[in-house]
Simulated assay, not measured.
Amino acid sequence: MSTDSIYVTPEHELLRDQVAKFIAREVEPHAAAWEEAGCVPRDVLRRMGDAGLFGLMYESQYGGAESDALTNLVFAEALSQSTFAGFIITVLVHTDMASPHLHHAGNAAQKDKYLSRVIKGELITAVGITEPGAGSDVAGIRTTAKRDGDEWVLNGTKMFITNGVHANLYFVAAKTGSGKRDMSMFIVEKGTPGFSVGRALKKTGWLSSDTAELVLDNVRIPAANLLGEEGKGFYSVMKNFQTERIALAAMAVGHCQRALQLTLDYVRQRQAFGGVLWEQQTIRQRLSMLDAKTRAARQFMYHCAWRVTQGHDIVQDVSMLKALTGELVNEVVQTCQQFHGGMGYIRETAIERLWRDARVLAIGGGATEVMLEEVAKRY
């Protein structure tokens, strides 16, 4: 299946090849064991950092490549050719969902202290926004931060935090005033007194991704750990959602591509009803239509990333993209699983793993219904 995009350059192809080789060498032979262990080994992430893959859009003075959003998308899509989504999301949370808060809002002292180590993979990051009573409704968070002299005191609980168990550095949203959107972002280091993992969460998919409930019980951090302007955290979160949602779209499109290729390979050799399954017209036509939808979604995804490079307001487009790809990946993967028959329901097969892992892409990072409301209110 050809999936070339007009936005992809020879330099992008080199990056894609680098990521593919890393996955083939470092991930695919070992990731089944990571699924059992429930996390990705930190030394693997450190090797990704050493390879220059953790700072594509960050400043060169800290070891970044100062690339653009298209390059970052190529990386996310290439990463998503792995069939182990727990590994993929572990990386993408670090590169596209957590550390961008430091990149966008951090001051010079904060970047000097942390950013080069984040880019090297010495510090793995997580972002603490979601709470038991506040998921897509970011303004509904109840964690508080109160100023006490030269410190901030944080109290609250965060839920569904990817990298939550094993991260070293957390960017935490907390209310700093009485207004609905009056919140700020804070840097919290692992090991800070009062900051703990309440429990590791068991999930249906993304099994090699560690996910946690986090508890903040009178956590005292220096005033210097305020990230960005006080009271402006809501807008920082909203801004970063666009990067996050493009990355999740890339993950969805990557799953579609792999599921289709796995299924094409399978139905071309699977014998049934006196011949191979590929001879069944309905199978050929449904796979062809799903491939067409995937290619169309992919071009829209690249167009969104290109619009970022041009400085456009992309909230409506990215909300459309997130809703579209989150639903599409579930349609594609479920159909592909169906065409695998009983083998599609056997644990440890790639298509069964993709089926489990795809479901959350219509929920995480903004549920489909929330995304469509973001689209509708901008007409």
Rank of each mutant, 00 (worst) to 15 (best):
V8A: 05
T9S: 15
E11Y: 13
L14A: 14
V19D: 15
A24C: 09
V27T: 06
A33Q: 14
V40H: 10
V40Y: 06
P41R: 02
D43W: 05
L45I: 12
S60C: 05
Y62D: 00
L70C: 06
T71A: 07
L79F: 06
S80H: 04
Q81P: 03
T83Y: 12
A85E: 07
I89S: 09
T90D: 07
V91R: 05
H94Y: 03
M97Y: 02
G106L: 09
K113C: 11
L115Q: 11
E122L: 10
I124H: 11
A126E: 13
I129C: 13
I141H: 15
T143M: 15
A145F: 12
K146Q: 13
K146E: 15
F160R: 13
T162F: 08
T162E: 04
A167T: 05
N168V: 03
Y170V: 00
V172A: 06
T176A: 08
G177Q: 09
K180Y: 01
I187K: 04
F195L: 11
S196V: 07
R199P: 01
K202Y: 06
W206T: 12
W206A: 08
S209P: 07
G231R: 09
V237I: 15
M238E: 13
G254T: 04
H255P: 02
L260Q: 05
R268F: 04
A272D: 09
E279K: 05
R284Q: 14
S288K: 14
R295E: 10
R298Y: 07
Y302M: 05
A305S: 10
Q310K: 07
K322T: 06
E327C: 05
V333I: 10
C336W: 08
G342K: 08
E352Q: 05
G365R: 01
E369A: 12
E369C: 01
L372F: 00
E373G: 01
E374N: 11
V375C: 03
A376S: 03
